[in-house]
C-alpha cells in the first residue's frame, strides 16, 4: 500500500524546493563567497587587535595591550570625544527636524509640491557625497569670511543635514503605519492638536524616533568625506584621526579602536532591530 499522505507531503516539499531561490544551484556558494569577502577582513582586524606583536600579519600571543594603549592615547581620546559630541548633537537636531518633516509630509492634506519636498529632504542620499562636501566647504568658507564666526558649529550643521534623511525614513514609515483614526479619536475626546500630539501621536511614534536617532548617530559617527572637508583645525573626529594614523602606517592600536567602534555600531543596530520588531 502507498502512503498517499507521505507522498503528497514529499511532492509538495519538492515543489517548494524548486521555486525557492535558496535551492537554486550555486546560490548558496555565491552567498557564502559574499559573506567571506565582506566579513573576513573584519574578522582579521578584530583578531589582530588582540595580537601582542606589533605586526598585523603574524600572530604571536593574546593581549589587551593595544586597547590599553589606545585608551591612554590622547589623540584618540580627544578625537573620540569630538566624534561623540558631533554625533550626539547632530543626531538630536536631525531627529527633531526629521520628525517635523515626517509630520508635515504625512499629516497634512497632500499639497502641490509635497513630492518635491520629500525629494529635497532625501537629497543627501542621492547627491554624491563628494559634491555635497565640496559645496559645503565653499559655502561655509564664505559664511566664515562674512561673519567671522568659527567653531565646531559648522561641522555639526553639515552632519545634521546629511543625517536628516536617515532619521526621516523610519519616522515617516511609522507615521504611515499609524492609524489616523487614533488622532481623530483624541480630537473627538477634547484633545487640542498639541495635546493629541503629546498624548497619542508622540508616544506611538517613539519607536520610530528612537530608530531614526540611532541611525543618524551611526551615520554621523561613521562619516569621513564630509568631515574631511568641513572639519576645521582641532575638530578631528575619530574616523579622521584613524585615517591620519593609517597614513603613517598601520598599528594594532588602530585595530583596537576600530573594534570598539564596530562593537558600538553592532549594539546600536541591534537596538534599532529590537525596537522595530517590538512594534509589530
Amino acid at each position: 500500500m502507498v502512503d498517499i499522505k507521505a507522498l503528497s507531503r514529499w511532492s509538495s516539499f519538492k515543489k517548494d524546493k524548486l521555486v525557492d531561490l535558496k535551492y537554486q544551484p550555486g546560490f548558496s556558494q555565491i552567498a557564502w563567497f559574499c559573506m567571506v569577502v565582506l566579513y573576513a577582513p573584519i574578522v582579521v582586524l578584530v583578531v589582530f587587535s588582540f595580537n601582542e606583536n606589533r605586526s598585523v600579519t603574524t600572530w604571536t600571543q593574546f593581549s589587551w595591550d593595544w586597547y590599553i594603549k589606545a585608551w591612554h592615547n590622547e589623540g584618540i581620546q580627544s578625537a573620540s570625544l569630538m566624534s561623540l559630541e558631533v554625533a550626539t548633537i547632530s543626531a538630536i537636531l536631525a531627529t527633531l527636524m526629521a520628525t517635523m518633516a515626517a509630520l508635515v509630509t504625512t499629516r497634512t492634506q497632500p499639497y502641490a509640491g509635497m513630492n518635491s519636498a520629500i525629494t529635497i529632504i532625501n537629497q543627501p542620499l542621492m547627491v554624491p557625497e563628494i559634491v555635497t562636501a565640496v559645496a559645503t566647504l565653499i559655502f561655509f568658507a564664505a559664511i566664515r569670511k562674512v561673519t567671522g564666526i568659527t567653531g565646531v558649529g559648522y561641522l555639526i550643521a553639515a552632519h545634521t543635514c546629511f543625517c536628516i534623511p536617515f532619521a526621516y525614513m523610519p519616522i515617516k514609515a511609522r507615521l504611515e503605519d499609524m492609524n489616523l483614526n487614533l488622532e481623530h479619536a483624541a480630537a473627538d475626546l477634547y484633545a487640542s492638536p498639541l495635546q493629541a500630539f503629546r498624548r497619542v501621536t508622540l508616544p506611538l511614534l517613539m519607536p520610530g524616533i528612537v530608530s531614526g536617532a540611532m541611525l543618524a548617530f551611526i551615520v554621523s559617527i561613521d562619516d569621513v568625506v564630509i568631515s574631511l572637508f568641513v572639519a576645521g583645525p582641532g575638530e578631528t573626529t575619530l574616523p579622521l584621526f584613524i585615517l591620519g594614523q593609517i597614513r603613517r602606517g598601520v598599528t594594532p592600536e588602530v585595530n583596537a579602536v576600530a573594534t570598539v567602534f564596530l562593537l558600538i555600531s553592532v549594539i546600536l543596530v541591534t537596538i534599532i532591530f529590537l525596537v522595530g520588531k517590538n512594534k509589530k
Binding site: N179, N181, H184, L189, Y190, V200, P203, L204
Partner: peptide, 20 residues
Amino acid sequence: LPPHKRSVNTVFQQYSLFPH
C-alpha cells in the same frame, strides 16, 4: 468649531482605542 470643542463623542467603527 474644531472637533475638540464640540460636546459630541464618537464610537468609531474600528474602535480606535489608544494601544499604549
